[in-house]
């Protein structure tokens, strides 16, 4: 019985939802980075250009994600030939979040209620991390630090 639980798949309901969340985030990043509205094919191309894991995305998956983001009012779209071109709605999210970050960072107490993914590093910590990363990425490439 116990061994059955061993291979715990990420494909539980929660896992799939998380994966979708990650994909949506990637699609949004592509669109933020683009200077112009993109159609699904362009989004897919840029996804496979940037991330390692996203290369195998089907066109329909990209369309689904874009449609969902559009329905959530995160993206705007206009028809261009047979497909739609999508763009982020406004800088609203960025502005609001920046305002918040500025406000919360102003005081230690406010800062403390935010959970940051990573805290600031000392130079020493950075060297340690680079060493750990190098040890992990076994091919002795000289500079693998930043993605």
């Amino acid at each position: 019985m116990a061994p059955l639980r061993k291979s715990r798949p990420a494909q539980t309901a929660g896992g799939v939802r998380r994966a979708h969340g990650a994909l949506e985030a990637e699609v949004l990043t592509v669109l933020w980075d683009a200077d112009e509205p993109l159609n699904p094919a362009q989004v897919r191309d840029r996804l496979s250009g940037s991330g390692a894991g996203a290369s195998g995305l089907a066109y329909t998956t990209v369309v689904t994600i874009l449609t969902r983001l559009f329905e959530k009012n995160v993206l705007s779209r206009k028809r261009d030939g047979r497909a739609f071109r999508y763009a982020p709605v406004t800088d609203e999210a960025g502005l609001a979040a920046r305002r918040l970050a500025g406000l919360l960072d102003a005081e230690p107490d406010r800062r403390a209620v935010l959970s940051r993914f990573v805290e600031d590093l000392s130079d020493n910590d950075e060297q340690l991390l680079r060493a750990l990363l190098r040890a992990r990425e076994e091919p002795p490439a000289s500079d693998t630090g930043q993605g």
Binding site: A25, N73, V74, A96
Partner: peptide, 10 residues
């Protein structure tokens, strides 16, 4: 903005 838990800023 939005109703999702995730907010991506540019």
């Amino acid at each position: 903005p939005g109703r999702d838990s995730l907010v991506v800023t540019p």
